[in-house]
Amino acid sequence: MTDLTTAFERVELPLETPFTISRGTQHTAANVVVRIEDGEHVGVGAAAPSRHYGETAATVEAVLPELLDVVEEAGDPLALDRIDARIDGRIGDNPAAKAAVRIACCDLAAKRLDVPLYRLFGLDGERTVTSSFTVGIDDPERMGEKTRTAVDAGYTVLKTKLGTDDDEARLAAVREAAPDARIRVDANEAWTPREAVDNCEWLASYDVEFCEQPVPAEDPDGLRYVYERSAVPIAADESCVTLADLPRIADACDVANVKLMKCGGPRQAVEMFHAARAHGLETMLGCMIETNAAIAAAAHLAPLLDYADLDGSLLLDSDPYEGVPMPTGLVDCSALDRPGTGARRA
């Protein structure tokens, strides 16, 4: 047993530019950073709550004292199974708050063993994947400009947000600005099933890699309808929240998009990746708009992925934390020169 001390703070993070998806525009991101200390090491994690999943910074702050009490009572950051079970037994839902605590526990556990997080999980750090860089909704000309900026910075995989009254013009501007890039599209539930099938026809003509969450999550039959008729592969995001969702989407998509802030932590994400594979799905790890205090932990799961969308901290005006090296999107865990998740104050 070890005497552990815990603390948390809310951080308001301005975005570099306003970020728009089909549901609205975001100018700042409220994250809640968690610290767990054992007197020698400090474990860091963060919550990036989403109202879409019923969480805000205020709800995270409301439940964190009880969740952190569980950690202090356990007294052993390596007792991850026990901590996970007691956290779920104490508080229902609230996955972003749980993720913050669990990320900090994993960070501290790996630091205690003097290994990077991917080694704590037994993963091959030399297996890499390239993260996409997201181009939010804007007028076509501005989306083209954002795309050229990303390409000039070296990004070769782009994710284009759609869900407007003129989606094709916006995608055309992105493709013109990035003729050689791999492009993915995310509609964030904006289309009806019939619209999605029609739209996927012209998406294919722009050589789109896949289309993410074309229809509302509340319409599983609609997702299956699109999947069975689509000209491009389909990824599920809002329809794929927790482990229990995977059997329900297994015959309705090609790719399962997992996020730590949806499923509740890194170990929970690993469970989802293995279950997705068992159901014949490809794996993707996404994020909210997050500080590297959260993104860094996600990056260590890269060896389990087919696709990554871990650009959340890149959309910030500045990030108070550094994380795993991701030059031009390449997630390189093996280049990490320190134990834990790699998150540290910038």
Results as ranks from 00 to 15, higher is better:
Arg224His: 13
Arg170Phe: 10
Cys211Tyr: 01
Lys159Gly: 04
Ala177Trp: 00
Ala177Pro: 01
Ala177Glu: 01
Phe210Tyr: 15
Val241Met: 06
Ala256Pro: 06
Ser239Tyr: 10
Ile249Arg: 06
Ala256His: 06
Arg194Ile: 12
Gly222Thr: 11
Lys262Leu: 12
Val255Glu: 01
Ser230Asn: 10
Ile249Asp: 02
Val255Asn: 00
Glu238Thr: 13
Phe210His: 02
Ala252Gly: 02
Cys253Ser: 07
Leu243His: 14
Ala181Gly: 02
Arg248Gln: 13
Asp254Val: 07
Ala217Asn: 13
Glu212Leu: 08
Ala236Gly: 01
Thr160Asp: 07
Ala256Leu: 10
Pro193Thr: 14
Asp221Leu: 13
Asp167Ala: 13
Val241Ala: 02
Cys200Gly: 01
Ala190Met: 09
Arg229Ala: 11
Thr160Trp: 09
Leu162Ile: 15
Thr242Ile: 14
Ala252Tyr: 00
Ala173Trp: 08
Leu171Trp: 04
Arg194Leu: 13
Val226Tyr: 02
Glu168His: 09
Thr242Leu: 07
Thr242Phe: 06
Arg194His: 14
Ile234Tyr: 01
Ala256Phe: 08
Glu168Lys: 15
Arg170Thr: 10
Thr160Cys: 15
Val232Thr: 07
Asn188Gln: 07
Asp219Tyr: 04
Phe210Asp: 00
Asn199Met: 08
Glu201Phe: 09
Asp180Lys: 12
Val157Cys: 09
Asp165Gln: 12
Arg224Asn: 12
Ile183Ser: 00
Asp167Leu: 14
Cys263His: 02
Ala217His: 13
Asn257Trp: 03
Ala250Cys: 12
Pro220Asn: 12
Pro179Ala: 12
Ala231Arg: 14
Ala252Val: 00
Ala204Val: 09
Glu218Ser: 15
Leu246Gln: 02
Ser239Cys: 11
Tyr155Ile: 01
Asp254Gly: 05
Gly163Lys: 05
Ala172Asp: 03
Ile183Cys: 00
Ala217Ser: 15
Ala244Lys: 02
Glu212Ser: 11
Asp245Arg: 03
Ala236Phe: 04
Thr242Glu: 12
Asp251Trp: 07
Tyr155Gln: 00
Glu168Pro: 06
Asn188Ser: 05
Met261Trp: 04
Glu212His: 08
Pro214Val: 08
Trp191Ile: 04
Arg194Thr: 15
Ala196His: 00
Leu260Cys: 03
Glu176Gln: 14
Ile249Asn: 04
Ala172Met: 03
Val174Tyr: 04
Asp167Met: 13
Arg175Leu: 09
Lys161Ile: 14
Pro220Asp: 12
Asp186Ser: 08
Ile234Asn: 00
Pro193Trp: 13
Ala250Leu: 11
Leu246Tyr: 06
Thr164Met: 10
Pro247Leu: 10
Asp166Ser: 14
Glu228Asp: 13
Ala181Arg: 01
Leu171Met: 06
Tyr206Thr: 08
Ala250Asn: 10
Tyr225Met: 09
Ala177Leu: 05
Leu246Thr: 02
Ala177Met: 06
Glu168Val: 15
Leu246Cys: 07
Val208Cys: 07
Glu209Ile: 08
